[in-house]
Design a protein around this nucleic acid. Structure first.
Length: 755
DNA sequence: CTAGGGTTAG
């Protein structure tokens, strides 16, 4: 209405060439369009140009672009300016590279001369749309043929940017070097392109050469170092910028804050916070996010909360996301959730952070409920969500759900990427499907050090240590640098497969060839390997010479090896340490009790019993679970609560019968209760593992493997009984217990575990 | 008409 009121009287302030007011919205543009059409003025090139140009300035939706392009199509005359404006419209609507290329072809067919703006917009469209390298080079060639040599930076700067965005740094560099006159933007674009590709040393060299070092060049270098994990260099770079006399702005500070988060350097963080106030740098939302994130990661959550309360409680979800993530990372999921519930408009990132927080604290049910709530906010799951859910499936051993997620990836409901593929490998491995994990791994386009590590760790857990080491060799041959996580996987492979010499070799090599200092986890693997191999003295030497205090995992390895290798004194020593570290962990008492019983030290054994009673330590009940048709069925010893108890017992009797008929005798020697042999056999038969397997045999189709999860360790009798069951029933049985996978097939098990 | 940035994942 407001706009129409000027329709008869042209604005005084408008350009003299165009007697029309300037529309400020698509709606106003369409009104002007109507007026021009009815008055026949639409054929007047300056009027039409004015309309198209001002419409272009208002574009905000794809529909607007089709309006603008249809308007363009109906114009009687197509000048270079009009084509350039149409290209500008494509850019504004970020509508990919197809429209621009078609426009360019029409231009040449129509004999319309291309000018500097034409190529300027074409190159920018290609950058935005990440166009194919071939197309970009073609347009570049067309540009060289068409343009006067002195086209200038209006064309070359977007050209360099285009090549840099596509990762074609050589093309970018050549174009840059061939520029007769380089302005500040050219230098900055080139430096930024190199920094983004991780070519930081080259970027730095260029920065030194540049006639002028501005805040933008410095910032791209700072961010580059920070992204590459070279946080200390990022901070140095920031300091160099300051001493170079370049004033930091909001973006520069955000970059150095993220480096500071990595370094967890609270003092530096505080001084940066002070600098913001001192230099009166604008406190944008993004800066607030970076500050909250920095304080949270540097361990000062109170300060993070303070900033959030002061400036973060607006409508924008980003500051909320930063503080929620901070609480989740510290394990305070309930505080995070209460903030989450206060939000008006959570976005995908909010949900992803909260879901991941729940998953990392083992609250998978809450994670799932939240995932289902996303629909109510009409939010779609993205790659982050799917990776988190795959992690949950991996830790639950939920193979069918994991497969469903895989299917949604294959159907391209989410974009395939390295993270996703690695999470898939991890999920299949943790569900015992080495074959499927391998297929995913082999089909992936891009791999990185995490992918290889997941593969090696997965093979290790599945008892395929030798294969894991082959993958490790292949990884190094392909030029990937192993990191400390990779070495945890490699050493786990050695300890789970009892590869003593290989373990020693890799433990030595990690420091000598790759400069990785062993952490407690690496020592843990080595101690386990030595102890399992019966070299308890050597294991203890390592424990005493390592530069940190042994943790419960390490004493646990020693203790369980002591039972097998009958080292009572060392067992007592290890147990003492364990009871100090974890006085409530029932497994320690049970282990020590069993060791005393094994060696007939009845008095010591009963002392342990008493100690447990005194301290109120309860033995956690062992249970096994199996998922059938999406439902989890949980069994404890002698369980009669299941609705199919009758069928299960019948099946267990058949199992006992068939085992006996092939000469199997239950391993009753470890049972310490004083009952007769037959009762012992009955007790073993009622173990939760066997109940779950019996139920699986009844309820799952014969071609499906049976997956069982056990919260403790599979007992010796169950282990050898399941081997036989897998042979007699010709079924694959996969049991995941506390420390590893047991893959039973045709009478064998993949694990190298002992009792 | 222009170059640099943050929070969620394996």
């Amino acid at each position: 209405m407001l706009f129409l009121s000027c329709e008869r009287r042209p604005c005084q302030c408008a350009m003299p060439a165009s007697p029309w007011p300037t529309p400020r919205s698509v709606r106003q543009a369409s009104q002007l369009h109507a007026v021009l059409t009815t008055s026949g003025k639409i054929v007047h090139p300056p009027s039409a140009g004015h309309l198209l140009s001002s419409l272009t300035n208002c574009l905000s939706a794809p529909l607007h672009l089709s309006y603008a392009l249809s308007l363009f199509d109906r114009l009687p005359l197509h000048s270079t300016f009009l084509f350039d404006t149409a290209l500008r419209a494509c850019l504004r609507a970020s509508a990919g590279a197809d429209h621009p290329v078609l426009l360019f072809r029409r231009m040449r067919r129509g004999g319309v001369r291309a000018d500097a703006f034409t190529f300027h917009f074409l190159f920018r469209c290609c950058s935005l749309a990440r166009a194919r390298a071939g197309l970009c080079r073609m347009l570049h060639a067309a540009c060289l043929r068409t343009m006067l040599p002195s086209a200038g930076t209006l064309v070359t700067n977007p050209l360099i940017h285009m090549y840099a965005v596509l990762g074609l740094t050589d093309d970018a560099r050549r174009a840059f070097d061939e520029m007769p006159v380089k302005d500040a933007v050219a230098w900055t674009t080139m430096i930024g392109g190199l920094a983004k590709m991780g070519l930081l040393d080259e970027a730095r060299r260029l920065l030194v050469q540049a006639p002028e070092r501005n805040v933008v060049s410095w910032t791209s270098l700072i961010a580059g170092y920070s992204r590459a994990g070279r946080a200390a260099e990022a901070v140095n770079c920031f300091n160099s910028m300051l001493s170079d006399g370049v004033a930091p702005d909001e973006v520069a500070v955000i970059g150095v804050l993220s480096a500071c988060s990595q370094l967890k350097d609270l003092d530096l963080g505080r001084s940066l916070h002070f600098l913001i106030g001192e230099k009166r740098i604008k406190m944008s939302d993004n800066l607030v996010v970076a500050l909250i994130d920095m304080y949270a990661k540097c361990g000062d959550i109170a300060c993070a909360q303070g900033i959030f309360d002061a400036v973060g409680r607006g409508q924008k979800p980003q500051p909320w996301n930063a503080i929620i993530d901070g609480y989740c990372k510290l394990g305070h999921v309930d505080i995070a959730r209460s903030l989450f519930d206060q939000m008006d408009t959570p976005d995908v990132i909010t949900f992803n952070s909260m879901i991941t927080g729940y998953i990392h604290s083992g609250r998978l049910r809450d994670a799932l409920l939240l995932f289902m709530q996303m629909r109510r906010h009409s939010l779609r799951a993205d790659n982050f969500t799917v990776v988190s859910l795959l992690t949950a499936c991996a830790s639950l051993g939920a193979l069918p759900q994991g497969r469903a997620l895989h299917a949604s990836i294959e159907q391209r409901l989410v974009e395939d990427d390295v993270y996703l593929a690695t999470a898939l490998v991890d999920m299949y491995m943790k569900c015992g499907r080495v074959d499927e994990a391998t297929i995913v791994f082999q089909r992936m386009g891009e791999r990185d050090v995490h992918t290889w590590s997941a593969m090696i760790a997965g093979l290790a857990f599945n008892g395929m240590g030798k294969v894991a080491l082959e993958y490790f060799c292949q990884m190094k041959r392909n030029g990937f640098q192993p990191n400390s996580v990779t070495y945890i996987a490699v050493l786990t492979a050695c300890s789970h497969s009892c590869l003593l010499n290989e373990g020693r070799l890799h433990f030595k090599e990690m420091r000598s060839s790759h400069g990785i200092h062993p952490q407690i986890e690496h020592y843990g693997c080595m101690v386990d390997l030595l102890a399992r191999s019966g070299l308890l003295d050597e294991a203890m030497d390592l424990v005493q010479t390592m530069p940190m205090q042994p943790n419960a995992v390490i004493w646990g390895s020693i203790l369980s090896a002591c039972r097998v290798h009958k080292k009572i004194d060392l067992a007592r020593h290890a147990a003492e340490h364990l009871l100090k570290l974890e006085p409530d962990e029932d497994a320690v008492y049970v282990q020590l009790y069993n060791i005393y019983i094994d060696s007939r030290k009845w008095v010591d054994a009963s002392r342990i019993r008493m100690l447990m009673e005194e301290r109120g330590v309860k033995k956690t009940a062992g249970y096994s679970s199996i998922t059938v048709a999406g439902q989890v069925h949980k069994f404890v010893v002698n369980d009669q609560s299941h609705p199919w108890t009758f069928e299960i017992i019948t099946m267990m009797e058949e199992i006992a019968h068939r085992l006996k008929s092939v000469g199997y005798s239950p391993i009753t020697s470890k049972i310490t209760v004083d009952v007769d042999e037959e009762e012992k056999e009955q007790a073993l038969l009622a173990h939760s593992e066997k109940m779950a397997i019996a139920f699986g045999l009844i309820s799952l189709p014969p071609n499906l493997p049976i997956h069982i999860m056990k919260n403790l360790r599979v007992c010796e009798d169950c282990h050898s009984a399941i081997k036989l069951i897998s042979k007699l029933w010709k079924r694959e049985i996969i049991v995941r217990d506390r420390s590893r996978f047991h893959h039973f097939r045709d009478g064998t098990c993949s694990c190298n575990d002992f009792w």
